[in-house]
Amino acid sequence: MGRVTATDRRAVLLATAGLTLATGCATRKAGAQPVPSSSGAPALPALPAQLTHGPRDRPRVALTFHGDGDPAIARALLTEAEKHGARVTVLAVGTWLDAHPDIGRRILDGGHDLGNHTLRHLAVNAMSEAEARAEIVGCAERIRRLTGSVGTWFRPSRTPTASPLVTRLAQEAGYPHVLSYDVDSLDFTSPGAAVVARKVLAEIREGSVVSLHFGYADTVAALPVVLEELDRRGLAAVTTTELFS
């Protein structure tokens, strides 16, 4: 048997996922990335405090990654995204940044958004005010030390949406909007790359914010399939900042 190439693997994965990839797709052009303020994400007054998706009338989507786990997988995912001209949003866990201090700079150097996913990735909505504040501010301080800013977005840990208390604490820490999502890849359940790709591509549409994770091999294998199909559909994967701009 001859050597199986990366193209062969993608074809098998696409077939398993029940998708057909068009050939000759134009490469996506990455748009200019808006620069956040030094304190964090710019306030978008026309939008609610909690955001689940962007405008439905523009061909853009945001792939967002919970930043934790093996940094080698994180780098592989970032490199794969950049090969396709895609930009993503990483919501990093503070202790993960402590363990891998170079990763925050790597994310920004690639033109991606970097945000806050709490210090220790605990159930932040169930905490007291003091505990929740420490989780949010603790991660913000680590991002600031690494990059000079608290980051662009906040996403609560162990829950898709923030309680009113956590929303207020996030705003006080420099995050005007809490970032949720309307497409959950469920990649953290390790269902297989084909299942991850099929679920994302079945639900994603203009303006979607997709929840994905660093640290899972299924996500690495599924990402090329997802990006190639987004290209075929004419949907650009952009940072969350660009999605809402």
Rank of each mutant, 00 (worst) to 15 (best):
K29D: 06
V178Y: 03
A194L: 11
A86C: 11
H66V: 10
R233D: 03
V61E: 01
T189G: 07
R56G: 14
A41S: 06
L21Q: 12
S211M: 14
A22C: 05
A81K: 09
A81D: 01
S211H: 11
T95K: 07
L201S: 13
E228L: 04
I103M: 13
S185C: 11
R158N: 04
R232F: 10
T64G: 02
S149I: 12
C139K: 03
E229L: 10
R58C: 14
I73Q: 10
V90R: 00
R168A: 09
V90C: 00
V200G: 12
E141C: 08
P164Q: 11
R9S: 14
T219Q: 02
H177S: 10
F188S: 15
T240S: 15
P34M: 09
Y216W: 13
F188M: 15
L119K: 04
D57M: 10
L165H: 09
P160W: 04
A86W: 04
R198G: 05
W153I: 03
L201D: 09
G18E: 01
E131W: 12
A46Y: 14
Q33R: 15
R155E: 00
D98F: 00
E228F: 11
A22M: 11
A194P: 01
A130P: 09
V88Q: 01
G192M: 08
R155D: 01
G67V: 09
A130G: 12
V166R: 02
L243S: 02
V124Y: 04
E82Q: 10
A170M: 04
F244H: 12
L212M: 15
R10M: 08
T7I: 15
P34F: 06
S149R: 07
T239P: 01
H117S: 05
E141V: 01
S245R: 08
K83I: 07
F214P: 02
A126I: 13
R10V: 13
D98H: 02
G40V: 07
A237G: 04
E141A: 13
